[in-house]
Nucleic acid binder design. Structure first.
Length: 772
DNA sequence: GGGCGATAACTAT
DNA sequence: TTCCAATAGTTATCGCCC
């Protein structure tokens, strides 16, 4: 990064806009020299080469645009900074002093935290295995992107996260070795074996990086025997010994930082690289001295953008954070200025337990490809991404509830579109149909053809599938047993609206449900449980939405008794601008889903009638079934009325009522190439005869279908370990596998505050990761 | 107007 | 010639509801 270069302009004045607008190109494209072995380089020359190699490209233009946007923000921030009165700054400084008083007592100097970082790990492994590479500039990766480089290459400005072709421009003799992950994993395991001797609960951050808390080790091996020992020296000896063991075992060197917390240990490990270590004594005086001289960019969590924000205020080293604390308080969000103060004070995690307890929050799969706008190709890529993601989730026993599709246009603009599924799943079918629907919607609503170079699928709101599966299984089992007992459930299409959703936590707010399968029974208090005649295991779900079936006698009587307190929403009718049908919905969200569906199907295949497998495909179908909507039918929407079967048969050639996920879709034009009928309720393949299908749908929605499901109850339990539970439209994975990895539902933290107009918007970073 | 869920966007390594 | 990844975590913002 230019910020640490002696020759770069930003060193002249922290108030200047760094490289922005200079002949060296946008600041966000400048070489980041914040890496061991990259000190004292001729950054001006290197940046010129980078600029020449990139200029004119879409990537360069994108970076320029982003930098211009950032520059505007930086200017606004500087203006705002100037506008504050002395009184305001004084007051803010006082508030920050108060914050310091609150933070300081949390300082814990009793732990000895070690950060181990393998030197140029991937490159070192390759050099070890091929001695001819040792004295030559080399990097590991591909022409697309380099993962790491050796020190000889770093002298030319070649570093990680740099495209290979730029590396070649900087150093024509650069040797690029492809990645061999299996090898790195093996070596990493060897390193971890050594670290485990010193702290069995060490926290691996990646293949080449880990934190250890050696406090207990020191106590066990040294302090308990001799209380007069200089524990600082002992810690250094122990860490040196550990590094030696690593080297003996792997023939690779490691560097280490020893400090009272993780933040400081991380900074320290970088100071004497390669093959060195740095010890920061656990006393306030040493820490304050160490931190105040520290460049802000050396702190983990402060990257390019954060650095530019701070530089704009004249803050280049950590001591400036303390000096300008009043400004920081006035300009940044609560989260940000809290983080800055923690950094300024040299605070961080002194225990690794909270890190070890971390749960995965999301899992994703993405790929970059040659830019294309071809629908079929993009759908194929999406499909393969979903398949891989589903497999990985199955392997890890995870299911998720929110699917996010990430798109990067050929101009490097990134978009993400998320959809919350009605039930957590890892099922490929749901993932793909949802991702595909989002993709098609984006393509249809984009101005002009949507050309993409990257697609990604991400699942979040994760939970452990075994855990979720067993609880859901219990719920369903309970539900079925209740149904068997009472035998009063009536499910016909007309009675779908009778399925109610009771939000007990909010005082029995009953809403009509459209989906019969979305049933989960929970009660908040014993009284509510009693009223609903729910088994005790449904207790304790605070403010949990309760979805009940009106046909269940006990529930029904409860609902009737309390009828007046329920606010049953009315359906409203809107005209769909795509299919011109009058659509009955409960809210705009439902209507939007209908619109999405119509847009997708109308645009992708005019003459082909399809039923989307979108979340509300049942709903869409039911609306149309009930309304016999001619408009829908004529506009390519599955709308055959069951009272109009003749007409439906006439449209059979139009592939009525098919589920896209289960038919062969010719992805090049989005039309259905083979006729297969899938029941939209139970998702099972049905006879290709439309009349039979219609009857089946009727049956599926009726009592007999429920009875059939009841018969399958035992089977459901028995097959739970096989995976997908075939409940209508709810591919919920119900596995009985045991796993030690628990994934409780990732609960969102409160939303950001600090909405003052003078706050710098968009300043969000991961600083707070380092504070619990 | 605060709490909260859903979604988009940003940032880091 | 090529023309800048993959993965994950956090924060911002909006809209709904009470």
């Amino acid at each position: 990064m230019a910020g640490s270069s002696k020759k770069s302009k930003d060193h002249k004045s922290g108030e200047e806009g760094l490289y922005a607008g200079t002949s060296l190109g946008p600041q966000n494209l400048a070489l980041n020299t914040n890496k061991a072995g990259m000190e004292g380089l001729d950054t001006e020359k290197i940046n010129e080469i980078i600029k020449n190699a990139s200029e004119g490209s879409r990537f360069y233009q994108h970076k320029q645009k982003r930098q211009q946007e950032l520059d505007i923000k930086l200017d606004q921030m500087k203006e705002a900074a100037k506008s504050f009165t002395d009184k305001q700054i004084k007051e803010a400084t006082k508030q920050m002093d108060q914050l310091v008083c609150e933070l300081e007592p949390g300082r814990d100097l009793s732990h000895t935290i070690v950060h181990i970082d393998m030197d140029m790990f991937y490159a070192a492994v390759e050099m070890r295995d091929d001695p001819t590479l040792r004295d030559k500039p080399m990097a590991v990766g591909g022409t697309g992107m380099l993962s790491t480089s050796n020190y000889a290459a770093r002298r030319f400005g070649v570093r990680a996260a740099m495209p290979g072709f730029i590396g070649k421009k900087l150093c024509p003799d650069l040797i690029i070795v492809p990645l061999h992950f299996d090898k790195y994993k093996k070596v990493s395991k060897q390193v971890q074996e050594v670290m485990a001797e010193y702290d069995p609960n060490f926290c691996a951050m990646s293949l080449d990086e880990a934190y250890l808390d050696i406090t207990q080790y020191l106590l066990n091996h040294y302090q308990s025997h001799d209380e007069d020992l200089d524990m600082g020296s002992v810690a250094q000896t122990v860490v040196a010994e550990m590094r030696e063991k690593i080297q003996t075992k792997t023939q690779l060197t490691a560097s280490a930082g020893i400090a009272p917390n993780t933040r400081l240990a991380k900074v320290c490990s970088d100071l004497n690289k390669p093959n060195g270590q740095y010890y920061l004594p656990p006393d306030l005086e040493s820490i304050k001295k160490f931190v105040s001289a520290l460049s802000i960019r050396k702190v983990s969590g402060i990257g390019n953008v954060s650095e530019q924000h701070l530089h704009a205020l004249g803050i280049t080293q950590c001591s400036h954070l303390m000096e300008k604390r009043g400004l920081l308080r006035l300009l940044f969000s609560d989260t940000s200025y809290h983080s800055f103060m923690n950094i300024a004070l040299g605070l961080g995690h002194s225990s690794l337990s909270s890190w070890n307890d971390r749960n995965r929050k999301s899992i994703s799969n993405e790929t970059t490809f040659k830019g294309t706008s071809e629908r079929g190709t993009l759908i194929k890529i999406t499909e393969s991404l979903c398949q891989e993601l589903a497999d990985e989730m199955d392997q890890k026993d995870i299911i998720g509830k929110v699917l996010t599709l990430k798109l990067k246009t050929i101009n490097f603009e990134i978009r993400s579109r998320a959809q919350t599924l009605s039930a957590p799943t890892s099922g490929f079918e749901v993932l793909f149909s949802t991702a595909r629907r989002i993709l098609l919607h984006e393509m249809n609503t984009n101005e002009g053809p949507l050309s993409l170079r990257l697609l990604g699928v991400r699942m979040s709101s994760l939970m452990n599938s075994a855990e979720a599966g067993s609880s859901r299984q219990a719920t369903l089992t309970q539900m079925f047993s209740k149904i068997t007992q009472e035998k009063t459930i009536i499910h016909t299409s007309e009675q779908v609206d009778d399925i109610l959703q009771v939000d007990i936590g909010n005082g029995a707010d009953v809403k009509c449900l459209s989906k019969i399968e979305e049933i989960g029974l929970h009660a908040k208090t014993p009284l509510e449980s009693e009223k609903l005649q729910l088994p005790s295991e449904f207790l304790g779900h605070n403010k949990t939405r309760v979805k009940v079936e009106s046909g269940t006698t006990s529930v029904k009587s409860f609902l009737l008794k309390n009828k007046e307190s329920f606010d049953t929403r009315k359906m409203e009718e809107y005209e769909c601008s795509v299919c011109s049908a009058q659509i009955r919905v409960r809210n705009m969200e439902e209507f939007n889903r209908h619109l999405d569906f119509c847009l997708e199907n109308h645009a992708s295949c005019d003459s082909t009638v399809k039923l989307s497998n979108c979340e509300d495909s049942n709903l869409n179908l039911l609306f149309c079934l009930n309304k016999s909507n001619a408009n829908c039918r004529s506009k390519g929407f599955t709308s055959e009325s069951r009272t109009d079967q003749t007409q439906m048969k006439n449209t059979r050639s139009q592939q009525s009522a098919v589920d896209q996920d289960s038919v062969n879709v010719d992805d090049n034009n989005g039309t259905v190439s083979e006729s297969l009928y899938i029941c939209p309720v139970c998702h099972k393949e049905q006879s290709s005869d439309v009349g039979s299908l219609t009857k089946h749908v009727d049956d599926c929605l009726s009592k007999s279908a429920i009875s059939e499901m009841l018969k399958d109850k035992d089977e459901l339990q028995g097959e739970s370990s096989k995976g997908t539970l075939s409940i209508p439209q709810k591919p919920v994975k119900a596995t009985s596998k045991n796993t030690s990895h628990l994934f409780p539902h990732g609960k969102r933290k409160g939303t950001g505050s600090g909405k003052s107009s003078k706050k710098v918007k968009g300043f969000c970073n991961t600083l707070d990761r380092y504070f619990s």
